[in-house]
Every structure is written in C-alpha cells, then in structure tokens.
C-alpha cells in the first residue's frame, strides 16, 4: 500500500505493545490506514481494541510503536522529543475525560492552549482573550467563562475541552469520545463544529466514539478489533 502524499496521517504496519507485555496479541497489530486533510474519520471498536492507543500515537503522546507512522509527511515513529513536541502543538486533542486544569477558569483553560504557540504570544493577550471569547460563544458557554471546572457540568467541561482543542485551528484534530458527556443537542453542536473544521479549515479529524448518533457525520468509519483494522 503506497503512501498517499497529501494524507494528513499515513500508517503502515503499525504495531504497539505495552512495555513488558509478551502476549501474542499486541494492542495494535499491523495497522495500516491513511486519512486525508478534509476528512472526518470515525474509529469504532470494542473497549480494548486499541482505538485510544492509536489516537495517542497519532498525537505524539506515546512512543514505542514499530512500523511507519507519518503525520503531515513527517515520520514520527521514532520521533525525537522536539519533533513530538512540534507535532502536539499542531494537533488538537480532545480527551475522553476533558482534562481541564482545575485551577483555571473556563476561558483560561482555552487560553493555556493558545499561549503555547509563538505567534499567539506575539499577537498578544488581547487577541488571545478575544479568541477565547469567540470560542466560548460558539459553544454557548459565554456565561461560564469565569467558572472553574468544579462549577461546570460534565457536558460544559467537555465543550471547553473541544474549544481548547480547536482554538489554534489545528491541522489535525483527535477526539476521544468527544460527545460522551454531552446531551443530544450539545453532541450535535460539537460534531457539527468538527465537521465544519474538516470541511473549511482543511484539517483532518479523527473521532473515537461509541455514539451511533454521530456516525452520519463521518466520511469514513474504521472499525478496530483486537488491534487490527477490519
């Protein structure tokens, strides 16, 4: 299978085992796939099928896989620390359990995702705060901008997590169960935002989910079973 050169993500024979594991069944077993810019791909599979592991490898949050993993044309399979750091800055990661910083307000949790970028620091605090306000408005959370996570509902926290992930207009969005804590309407808003990003922002979106309600928004659905793509 040749590499598609305008692919955001190219994976060839990717295998991953947790350290110390000697089992014949690795977590990921010779996974190969390509995801292009502009695509919204949904990864499904039973618990333990390797979905989150694949997501963390794609986002540069984990190393130690064998095979080939290219993101934006860069081989990150054996990526060094600086390469992985650069990758993480280009990726918007939406965590399953939101992972907001408890000591920052909703707006500040989005801001912390922008301050990592040189160009935002150069533009200045006013622009950063303006961007945070814009995103909070988009996700219907303007009234909660000064609230800390402990004063927000699960769904609100997840929406903040989404806002943080998309704040810098990343070229790759990796979402791990983004709608799990959201009600039907909020879930629709969230997935529509991700769909709109894929279409107009020219980014690739990969969503891990068990939520059947959002499958229709995907360009493709990839099913993982026992670490392999079916």
């Amino acid at each position: 299978m040749s590499i598609i050169h305008h692919a955001a993500v190219s994976v060839r024979d990717l295998t991953y085992r947790y350290s110390g594991e000697q089992s014949d069944l690795p977590v990921l077993n010779s996974v190969s796939l390509d995801i292009s810019v502009g695509e919204l791909v949904i990864l499904t599979g039973a618990s333990g099928s390797g979905k989150t592991t694949l997501l963390t490898l794609l986002g540069g949050l984990r190393t130690g896989a064998t095979g080939l993993l290219e993101v934006f044309g860069k081989n990150i399979t054996l990526g060094c620390t600086n390469e992985l750091l650069d990758l993480r800055k280009q990726v918007g990661f939406i965590f399953q359990s939101h992972n907001l910083l408890p000591y920052l307000t909703a707006a500040e949790n989005i801001r912390v995702g922008l301050e990592i970028h040189d160009h935002w620091r150069q533009i200045g605090l006013d622009a950063i705060e303006s961007r945070c306000a814009e995103l909070l408005d988009l996700l219907e959370l303007s009234a909660r901008s000064r609230f800390k996570p402990k004063d927000l509902s699960l769904g609100q926290k997840q929406r903040i997590s989404i806002a943080r992930a998309i704040a810098n207009d990343p070229r790759l969005i990796l979402a791990d169960e983004p709608t799990a804590s959201l009600d039907k309407d909020s879930a629709k808003v969230a997935i529509k935002i991700l769909r709109q990003r894929a279409d107009s922002q020219q980014c690739a979106v990969i969503v891990v989910t068990h939520d059947n309600k959002i499958l229709d928004f995907a360009d493709r659905i990839i099913h993982l079973e026992n670490g392999s793509v079916l």
């Binding site: 949050l61 650069d86 993480r88 990661f93 992972n99 910083l101 990592i116």
Partner: peptide, 14 residues
C-alpha cells in the same frame, strides 16, 4: 500528575 500530563499533551515541553 494528570494536569502536568495535560500540559505535555497540549505541547508544553517537559
């Protein structure tokens, strides 16, 4: 630890 992990995942360096 989980907060520090989040910062690392966002792209902040170790």
């Amino acid at each position: 630890l989980s907060e520090y992990a989040t910062l690392l995942a966002l792209g902040y360096s170790n």
